[in-house]
């Protein structure tokens, strides 16, 4: 292998090319970005395919079936195959069965998870003594935000006033989160610029 090939400039050339190609999208749509976009989509779809093939189809279906004789995996296997029934008009409706199974079980899990894992602890944490401005603001913030989501009556009169206090709190929170995230995103950008200038071109330290 020629020596020049092992230089970081050439070793990192593909990575740098695709990095610049994606940044070029900030200017406007162009063939370089279009190429990067399609390569990116193809690779990540392939990545997901390989990952799920190995971790689900092979490890959770094929191996238990052939090595451990777990015939029960045939049930989800058949349900999974029913997804392809859509290509056969006569039995096309059966494609809804695996979807109904997944959506139904998700609904069952979520019903409990949201009430037990979300409502109970969040309400519990709001039970604070009225002994500081901090606690009072937290209680007022939680309740007015909750009342903002009240659907059964128009937001007029007292309800409207409470809801507008709620929206004030919501705007403070959103602004705060926006400001909080800006710095994190800027540090990510600095990381990519460092890759281009330091790792690839070696023009800065």
């Amino acid at each position: 292998m020629p020596e020049w090939y092992s230089h970081p400039f050439f070793l990192l050339l593909p990575t740098a090319f695709f990095t610049l190609a994606i940044f070029s999208f900030l200017y406007k749509d162009n063939p370089m970005f279009k190429l990067a976009e399609h390569v990116f989509a193809g690779l990540s779809a392939g990545y997901y395919f390989g990952l799920i093939w190995q971790s689900v189809i092979r490890q959770q279906v094929w191996m238990p079936l052939t090595q451990d004789g777990q015939w029960s995996v045939l049930i989800p296997g058949v349900l999974g195959l029913l997804m392809f029934a859509r290509f056969f008009p006569r039995i096309g409706w059966t494609t809804r069965l695996p979807l109904a199974f997944v959506i139904g079980s998700t609904a069952g899990i979520m019903f409990i998870q949201q009430l037990h894992g979300m409502v109970l602890p969040q309400v519990g944490r709001t039970l604070l003594p009225l002994d500081s401005l901090r606690n009072i603001l937290i209680i007022v913030g939680v309740l007015t935000t909750l009342i903002y989501f009240y659907f059964s009556k128009p937001h007029t009169g007292t309800l409207g006033w409470i809801a507008s206090v709620g929206i004030g709190f919501i705007m403070v929170a959103f602004g705060a989160h926006f400001g909080y995230t800006v710095m994190a995103r800027v540090s990510l950008l600095i990381g990519r610029v460092q890759f281009l200038l330091v790792d690839w071109l070696g023009v800065a330290r």
């Binding site: 994606i22 999208f25 749509d29 970005f33 279009k34 990067a36 976009e37 990116f40 989509a41 690779l43 990540s44 779809a45 990545y47 997901y48 395919f49 990952l51 799920i52």
Partner: peptide, 20 residues
Amino acid sequence: QYVAGESFSYSARVGGIMMR
């Protein structure tokens, strides 16, 4: 259409589709 199995490539692809 299934676009990609990862969220950033998905954003890139969706961005491309919307721009065009």
